[in-house]
């Protein structure tokens, strides 16, 4: 028994259930997040009547593509037991840098790789501080956050418009069957691709499994002879690259870069990842869960704008939801450790 509250006692079902819980206990928080999402969808549909439309659901992905990309990167870091507070600022910095390079006439084929590389470099810097100098992830990524925010302002104090057709194409193109039906933008496709690649990396590569092992017990992972140092550095690099990519997507989304972009986004990202069922202590969680977390976040925002209420309610609701999830996780952990 895993100590998960199994109340179903039917003879035939209980064996299978028990087996499920013994094998797949870490999926329970993800399922809980999914349940919340579905309840929200149904509730919103019942209340507004026009919520579950292809247009609304499609724009959910469109509006939150950057957050989804950030959340995937954050999942890698949190799974190792770390945290990356720099993602919002790195997104802003790479966005600013990219916009200014484009303004200076550099081709997009150079600018986008540069943005990704800068993100990777910021991630690597955090990783090196964490891994080689025993700096706590919180502080190391905090320093990177400050640095990136300052650098963003150094590029320019005001916003820079982006007129490059390739970047704008990412956002403005709507791949759509018919007017009013489902649609997806290249940014949305990009985000989905990131989710798929992230999920594959975590589930089907030694790199991914080593991340789980480190989050479960770093000392053990080291003694098992797994490449702990390399893997942890890479996790932060993945998060950095994702932040760089989010910079591209967010720039496309707003059509301009502003150095104050993404303030507080690191918190939204962490909240989405946690709501998606990833334990902050590391070792348990899924990219798919983070995606559900982002969708929950996006739906709350949409519902609140449907209500015409203050957007400040978004943060309050997210805070409350985060609390709910953390308390539930806490109960689950307490129960399984009492076993």
């Amino acid at each position: 028994m895993t100590g998960i509250p199994v109340t179903v006692e039917r003879a035939s079902a209980s064996g299978a259930l028990r087996r499920f819980f013994s094998r797949r206990a870490s999926w329970i928080p993800v399922l809980a997040a999914l349940a919340i999402l579905i309840v929200m969808f149904i509730g919103a549909q019942a209340y507004f009547g026009n919520f579950l439309t292809p247009r609304v659901i499609s724009s959910l992905l469109l509006d939150n593509a950057y957050l989804l990309i950030l959340a995937v990167g954050m999942t890698f870091v949190i799974l190792t037991g770390g945290i990356d507070l720099s993602v919002g600022a790195v997104m802003a910095f790479t966005g600013m840098l990219g916009a200014s390079l484009l303004r200076d006439g550099l081709p997009v084929g150079v600018v986008v790789p540069v943005m990704l590389l800068i993100g990777a470099a910021m991630g690597l810097a955090v990783g090196i501080m964490v891994q080689y100098f025993d700096v706590q992830p919180f502080i190391a990524s905090l320093a990177a956050m400050f640095a990136a925010r300052g650098l963003a302002f150094m590029v320019s104090l005001s916003s820079i418009r982006v007129e490059d057709p390739a970047i704008l194409w990412l956002q403005s193109t709507r791949i759509q069957a018919a007017p009013g039906s489902w649609f997806i933008t290249p940014t949305g496709i990009l985000a989905i691709l990131v989710v798929i690649v992230g999920a594959l990396l975590l589930a089907y590569t030694r790199f991914g499994r080593t991340i789980y092992a480190i989050g479960g017990n770093e000392q053990s992972a080291r003694l098992m002879g797994l490449p702990v140092v390399r893997t942890k550095l890479l996790a932060y690099v993945v998060s950095g690259v994702c932040a760089g990519l989010a910079g591209v997507v967010f720039t496309a989304y707003t059509g301009a870069s502003y150095p104050l972009n993404g303030i507080g986004t690191e918190l939204d990202t962490i909240a989405a990842v946690v709501i998606g069922g990833t334990l902050l202590t590391g070792g348990s969680g899924y990219v798919l869960g983070s995606m559900i977390g982002v969708l929950v976040y996006g739906s709350i925002k949409t519902v609140i704008s449907f209500l015409g209420a203050e957007q400040s309610w978004t943060r309050i609701t997210i805070g409350a939801l985060l609390l709910l999830f953390v308390v539930v996780q806490r109960i689950i952990v307490a129960r399984s450790s009492r076993r």
């Binding site: 590569t205 030694r206 098992m224």
Partner: peptide, 25 residues
């Protein structure tokens, strides 16, 4: 015991020696 309790029994046995096909486990 220096294993990872958050992973499955099989994974703990095989971590770092997983059978791979075309680069994927």
């Amino acid at each position: 015991v220096n294993l990872c309790t958050n992973l499955s029994v099989g994974e703990n046995v095989m971590l770092g020696h997983e059978v791979r096909r075309a680069g994927l486990i």
